[in-house]
Amino acid sequence: MDSHEPVVMTTEPRPGVLLITLNRPRVRNAVDQALAGALDSALTRLESDPSLSVGILTGAGGHFCSGMDLKAFPTEGVPLVADRGLGGLTRARVRKPLIAAVEGAAVAGGFELALACDLITASDTAFFALPEVARGLVAAEGGAVRLPGRLPYHVAMEMLLTAAPLPAPDAARYGLVNQLTGEGLAVDAALTLADRVQAHSREAVHITKRIVQDTRGLDDHTAYTVQDPLSAPVFTTGAAAEGAQAFTEKRPPAWSR
């Protein structure tokens, strides 16, 4: 990589979609403080730009991300951004849908970045791993918290306690990966998913994601108490009226953007 190239690249491959590419291919896109800050800036752009509705996170050079840059760790520490976690993502509340498009390695903090996304596409040669225990560390940016809820418990614990990798075809079989693709096609599959998301009301999509975030782990009664103030206003919006009218008239909805 040229020293003047950005460590995170952003493009808009189609209207409404921001493609965020981690760009340190020589180190499998390991996260140092510079990359963490640049990723945080890209996510801020996704959230603040009203023309954008979906983000896709991927890596350059045939790999997603190898996690924290261990060479930089002794001097830089863990590349956290304020209270938003690794790269400004793992502990953040991103309002808009985010898709991880995984090629090659999604390891340690790289896997935790993928776990912080809402959808995952992966090539059939990709793999996931949380090898922190082998480095005297802990998967503290979502690995230990999120993974047991995404995989069968004993599969997740084997990954966490033995550092065993999980090939993408197995991850897809367990439901961790939404779309399994041929090598080099994970971003294409993510763009297709982004189109499917964008076909619907942005407000309804955003509120649905927030409900999931805010009610996870709650009992039903408490969950409805949290959900109802968020969902009730949606039923009186122009989007709701348009959705009902489009259904009646047997045509695609014409959402206002």
Rank of each mutant, 00 (worst) to 15 (best):
M1V: 12
T237E: 08
P233C: 09
G182M: 07
K209M: 12
E183N: 13
L193C: 01
A164V: 08
R93C: 04
P13H: 11
E141A: 05
E103N: 15
Q213F: 13
V102E: 09
L119D: 00
A92G: 05
A72H: 07
D40E: 12
V177A: 04
S3Q: 14
G143W: 07
I207C: 10
L130C: 02
L191R: 08
I211Q: 07
V7C: 14
A42L: 03
H4S: 14
S256H: 12
G61P: 05
C65V: 04
G59Y: 04
V7M: 03
A101P: 03
A171C: 10
V205F: 01
S41G: 09
F235C: 06
H63Y: 09
V78N: 09
V197W: 15
L193N: 02
T125E: 14
S201G: 10
P252Q: 13
L86G: 08
D40Y: 12
P148I: 02
A254R: 14
L57F: 00
E141K: 00
A122Q: 05
T11I: 09
E203T: 15
A116V: 04
T215D: 03
L52W: 03
P167C: 06
G88P: 00
A204Q: 04
V7K: 08
F235S: 13
Q198I: 09
F235W: 15
Q33H: 15
P148Q: 11
M157Q: 13
K250Q: 15
P252W: 15
L147D: 02
M157F: 05
G110V: 02
T162W: 00
T10S: 06
R210W: 04
Q213H: 13
R14L: 13
L80D: 14
T208S: 15
R24L: 08
V187I: 12
V27R: 14
V234R: 07
A190K: 06
A72N: 03
E76N: 03
F127A: 13
A134V: 04
G149S: 13
L19V: 02
G87H: 01
A199H: 11
D219M: 07
G238P: 01
G143A: 14
V226D: 01
R24H: 05
S41C: 07
F111A: 13
A34H: 11
T125I: 13
R216C: 09
A105F: 11
K250G: 05
Q245G: 02
R24S: 01
L43H: 02
S231F: 09
G104R: 08
E103G: 15
F73R: 12
R173C: 07
K71A: 10
G110I: 03
G217S: 06
R216I: 11
K209P: 00
G184H: 03
I20W: 08
G67I: 08
D118N: 15
S51D: 11
T248H: 10
D220W: 12
